[in-house]
Design a protein around this nucleic acid. Sequence first.
DNA 1: TATCTTCATAACAATCCGTTATATTGTTTT
DNA 2: AAAACAATATAACGGATTGTTATGAAGATA
Lengths: 316, 316
Amino acid sequence: MKIDERHLIQLAAVVKTGGVTEGAALLGLAQPAVSRTLSMLEKRVGEPLFIKGRRPLRPTPLGLSLAEHGLVMLAASRKASDLVESFRIGKSGVVRIGGTPFFMDALIARLCAEFQTSHPDVRIDQSYGYFSDLRAALRADQIDLAICPIDILDEGSGLEFQQILPGRNVVACRVTHPLLLKRRPQPSHLLDYPWIAPPPGSPLLADLRALLLSFGATEIKIRYTGGSLMSVINYLKSADALTVMPHSVVFAQRKEKTITALPITIPHPERALAILKRIDAPRAPAVDQFAEFVRAGFQDLRHLIKRHEESVIWGL
Amino acid sequence: MKIDERHLIQLAAVVKTGGVTEGAALLGLAQPAVSRTLSMLEKRVGEPLFIKGRRPLRPTPLGLSLAEHGLVMLAASRKASDLVESFRIGKSGVVRIGGTPFFMDALIARLCAEFQTSHPDVRIDQSYGYFSDLRAALRADQIDLAICPIDILDEGSGLEFQQILPGRNVVACRVTHPLLLKRRPQPSHLLDYPWIAPPPGSPLLADLRALLLSFGATEIKIRYTGGSLMSVINYLKSADALTVMPHSVVFAQRKEKTITALPITIPHPERALAILKRIDAPRAPAVDQFAEFVRAGFQDLRHLIKRHEESVIWGL
DNA sequence: TATCTTCATAACAATCCGTTATATTGTTTT
DNA sequence: AAAACAATATAACGGATTGTTATGAAGATA
């Protein structure tokens, strides 16, 4: 005996409200529709669902039991409708983001938390990678957004990218570093201290190499490599080591007062932090909202970072 | 955004089984029906529910969430179908029985328990009353069955009654009662002992009066009245009192070896224990099954009781 | 008894459903 | 890389069901 689910829901509405008219109103239907449904149900079930000739309407035990199941369905239906609604306005769903480790750790994680104060039902799945990995992950639909530095020249190929921060690197060290005592540290001084190399494969590593070349240096003391941002910072805290970092990452740590940037200008990489999306794929609304949130967040940061850069590096 | 419940269920079936074809099979539908449902759902929801161009079919997060709600509905629907099925074969539902206290306590309660070994999901609601109450309760649809002694002459009036045991009364006493030592106790001896009167309003009370009249007795010592069967038995256990009881009730207590019947024949009431139903009303299948169970149970008891009567009362 | 509310029925239009037949697409095999 | 295979999407159609409004019947209430 297969029972039409809609019928059960209508039965539940009638039992719940105590009348055909009210039940129909609850479902936004006309009374005769529900009335007919009930007679059809009774005919199919072959047993009375309501006690006849009594008003207010009273269900039989069977009718009551069936109505309970209908109520379950009604609730599930409501929840499903709400889910769709909240998904469409970007208030629920999953956002899968990938990015370069330092940016994610230093800047994005905090933004995720902030985003969820207004979008508590959105889940964020984060993963790490560099440009080529992220591009592949985007194309394979393993992530929805990538946040990473890309060469300004890189273009198209099905990906849309939105620049959110110009690429500026600095030499980072702990706040007690001896080089900070000099008014104008010279690049040659940099070679006197141990260095932390950025993770293999990272753009920063390439930046470090370019930096050395610009000094004409052939060798520096690499003493530590491979650590995540937290490892690097903790290492820096404990030694007079140096490393190359995006300025924004150092900026994000300014409140901790543990690391800072040396007042030395080094070449800008031809790169910018950007948000990458697939241009063709349909994205969940929550993804677009998150991307916009990140973009707006960086927009706010931009001049703060600029001013910080001028004061720290140029000493203005 | 209202969503058709049937659509959600089909979605759930597809997600659960991992394919349109299998999902359709699970629901007993053809594949194109389900396929079309999915496209309609996607169009209405406005968001993709499955990742396009990938097989085996993989749902999007939204599709997965919606499918979970659908699964709830599917389960509820299955349960409802099972419920109807078991109700129709009398394996679930409610049976509301009413009856005279002594019979219910001595005989019917045990039958209820036995009935439920084969019908564990049937609930039995028991209540007490005498004929006129029970008849009213039946007519008001407060009970489904009444089990009580009725005059053979009583007839019709919308009620069907089925005789299950002839009315035989005995004089009951404890097994150590002194009258049991006499080979042939005479009616006059009965007046020497204290009596328990059956509850006011009960047919037994009328029987007691008739009994007295037949002895020409004008007065007996009523020492106790108003108790339920258990009270009466416990009273009898502790005193050499006498009372009138249906023989079947005494019979039901034979295993306890605490009360028995005096070997004295007293007039049969023109009554029989019967099952009463409304003749017009639709009854739940479980009710009919229970009535039949009770009838069959008494049928089995009948000759046992007869033999017991002969051996106890006639000393055969 | 009269009135009022609520439920049941009738009639009709529109939608939706489920079917079979067929095309398309993604995957696997050679 | 082409071909074979399997699964899904589309098309077309008959029929069932759903929704509506208008109206009649039956309890409840005064």
